[in-house]
């Protein structure tokens, strides 16, 4: 093989390693979730978002955006849906969620925890997806008939994911105060 004339060396720093680790967990959850049979296309728990929430609470919005978008791209490549309509719906949902989280993250942490972030993200997610579906996939107001169903799913899964993220953060905090007990933090 011809040697490259330009040598580009990328040195990953601690940030990159951290983002990669969390992204890997999120991707694994997304792929595992694809095995769960679900009655309605578009309604799914979005377990990968638990990781996004944990990263948002711990490291801030920039890292959360990295993890979220890396997950959307990598999971779609693994599941073979890259550039298919489902991928664009995921991407649009993720972007809408991140936009909303950017605003919600400014709320005082004392009163608003992971559950608020999760609900904001899940509702923004269905909002973004419905908007894209209306503009591009089904150019008819009929898609909005599904809005209540999606909203109900966003409510249930948003709450569940938020609680899971809160539990994760709480457990890690407990582990740190008593290093002998429990599993090491990921």
């Amino acid at each position: 093989m011809t040697r490259s004339t330009t040598e580009i060396t990328l040195t990953p720093d601690a940030d990159d390693h951290r983002i990669a680790r969390y992204s890997a967990v999120a991707i694994a959850l997304s792929v595992a979730e694809a095995a769960i049979p679900l009655p309605l296309p578009g309604v799914k728990p979005g377990l990968g978002n638990i990781v996004t929430l944990v990263v948002l609470m711990r490291y801030g919005w920039r890292d959360a955006a990295w993890v979220s978008l890396l997950r959307v791209f990598a999971a779609s490549l693994l599941l073979g849906s890259f550039l298919a309509p489902g991928f664009f719906l995921s991407l649009c949902g993720a972007l809408a969620s991140l936009g909303a989280l950017g605003l919600a993250a400014r709320l005082p942490r004392r009163w608003f925890g992971p559950v608020t972030m999760s609900l904001v993200a899940s509702f923004a997610h269905i909002g973004g997806q419905l908007l894209l579906a209306r503009l591009w996939l089904v150019p008819h107001d009929g898609v909005f008939l599904l809005a209540p169903v999606f909203a109900l799913a966003a409510l249930v899964f948003g709450l569940a994911n938020g609680l899971a993220a809160a539990r994760w953060l709480a457990d890690d905090a407990a582990d740190r105060s008593t290093p002998e007990s429990g599993q090491p933090a990921p």
Partner: peptide
């Protein structure tokens, strides 16, 4: 589990539930 919810979280949950409940009659 209830300990995982902060005061504002209950507010967010209430708003989300109201929004969902309002969507059903509004759309259907």
């Amino acid at each position: 589990w209830r300990g995982l919810l902060r005061a504002g979280d209950w507010l967010a949950l209430l708003l989300a539930t109201l929004l969902t409940a309002a969507l059903f009659p509004l759309v259907w």
